[in-house]
Amino acid sequence: MAFREYKIGARLFGVALGGSMIITLYLPTIDMTSVAATETSLRKQLSYGRIGGFSYEDPFLLGEGKPKTVVLTEDPVTGQQIETVEAYVYEPGIPFAGGINHPRVLGDGITDLSLEKGRISEADISAGAVFVVSRGSYQGETVNYIENVTATRGWKPEKVLSVAGDANTSYVGSGKIMFVKEGCWWCHTLLPEQTQDWQYFGVPPRLGDFNGESPTAFGSDRKAPDLLHVGSRNSSKEWMMMHFFNPRLVQPHSIMPRYDYMWGEKDASGNTIDFDAWGAAYNEYAKGESLYPPEVPEYAPNSQIRYLMDFILSLK
């Protein structure tokens, strides 16, 4: 070989690069994969579904193949009143979240309880399943775990959806896809910083807050407020709707782009939205020629903006 003069160098190079990869990849991975999932990460992964970027089930990032998040106040099987519970509904064919496919990522105790008491290994993609986050005790400690309520309580996906109704159903998983596709994370971080931010943007995430989530979409360039807890700061649907349609309606100095195209062609009552007329009326308002801005159209229940709003409002 023509590298014979470089025998020592070539080997040292291998040692250096290999050593660097052991320290920066192998050792941290041992640490990070041994962290137990927090309740936040259980809820996040269950509501986001398998993966949040390009995937088999959703190659064009339209928000397909994602679970729905519902709020239930009655038991869908018996009809009895129950304590309000957030359930994650995977209709037949929707791929499961990371922690259901690979329970090991949930961490000690949680994996065991989810498998034994939560029976998550019995969940079947072709039949669909409903999950909730429950509390149990593991070796004397209270632990959150995932419960497959289809197996434990007989809650069927279609039944749960019909009992909850559209008003109590959020497309959080599909909304996360919109967040990724529209590049919200190029300006808004999902990462309040540990050294400050507590007062304005809330508690920074903890080590176990991400198990099973993909991608985490932290964002790196904060041209705009952090959004990790935005749903706690501002839960007004009305405000969000105006802000997404044209941010200058509610915040004149905002540099956020308009997301009016996410309304699609029709509004909630099935009428075609006339964006040109809206724009003309808005320009009049912006120039001070009219007193009030035009009304923002009500969005259709299956529009992309509904997905995105459901996701943003779920960030508590």
């Binding site: 040292l12 190079f13 250096a16 690069l17 660097s20 990869m21 320290i23 920066t24 050792l27 941290p28 640490d31 990070m32 990462l191 910083e193 540990q194 050294t195 920074p204 995430p205 903890r206 080590l207 807050d209 932290f218 790196s220």
Partner: peptide
């Protein structure tokens, strides 16, 4: 050349200094 291979291949975690990574990793990076 050698300092690039040894030093420049290791500080990846400093891009996530404000994320909840293991503290030893951040200090090392």
């Amino acid at each position: 050349f050698w300092s690039v291979v040894v030093f420049y291949s290791t500080p990846a975690a400093h891009h996530l200094m404000s994320a909840p990574l293991p503290e030893w990793l951040k200090s090392f990076a």
